[in-house]
Nucleic acid binder design. Sequence first.
DNA 1: CATTTGTACTATCACAACTAATACAAGTGA
DNA 2: TCACTTGTATTAGTTGTGATAGTACAAATG
Lengths: 131, 131
Amino acid sequence: MWLSIDPRSSVPIYQQIVDAVKERVAKGALASGARLPTIRELAVDLTINPNTIAKAYQELERAGVIEVIRGKGTFVCPPKPAVAAPPQMSALHELMTRLLVEAHHLGVTPEYVLATLQDMIDRWPAKKEEE
Amino acid sequence: MWLSIDPRSSVPIYQQIVDAVKERVAKGALASGARLPTIRELAVDLTINPNTIAKAYQELERAGVIEVIRGKGTFVCPPKPAVAAPPQMSALHELMTRLLVEAHHLGVTPEYVLATLQDMIDRWPAKKEEE
DNA sequence: CATTTGTACTATCACAACTAATACAAGTGA
DNA sequence: TCACTTGTATTAGTTGTGATAGTACAAATG
């Protein structure tokens, strides 16, 4: 299947699902319009409660990542138009601060972080260069 | 004072303390050798239970950020030597992935993330240029 | 040796995550 | 229209974590 969950992780199951779907969409592994498994299917597949899947899907819908249609299923939303600095930029800012703070305590220089991030972007699966 | 805690946050209090201290150390606001408040002082100051502070300090000690000495107090550890790629690099890798994934769903381009991070590094309080 | 500082332990409360079971609502498709 | 599929809602119960409270202990200071 396309999802692996660790029930023993301290990260809630529904959050793991949210993160996994977000990452797959961002990397292009789940294209716009793709259909996700139904709540009941996924529940059987991962042997977890349907309510937990439902919670994850609701979270993803609030984030604007998927669209949920009763009787049909759930689908990946079209990508947002690129924006320079959205109001939620502070969330990204916070992530970046945490990144630099963690790096500092691991003895990693900011320059190395920057270079590694650049490299990661270059290798990003959904790169548009070849389109 | 030097710490503000939000008891209503979903982030555990002890975690807020850990994050705040780590950030201050990384930014140079808490220099190596600086003495932190005693557990009991902080507990009174923040009107929270001493056990909670103790938990935060233990976590910080495990992370190698502070050194705890009975009868004396707790002190900021000397900085780690700069390293290219430590074994814990995967933790940073994960943070960077999350950063790029979140950016994608906010409609922010990787290039903008990179530029903002560069800017953030330039403005980092503990910059060594003027030494 | 009194004091200061951190450590350890046990009990208790509150809350969030998860499970479970059931009933309901809305759209599909013949 | 009607059986079916799909998501939604509700209620109840279990479990684990965070936090409080109180007490006792250990180690270094001066």
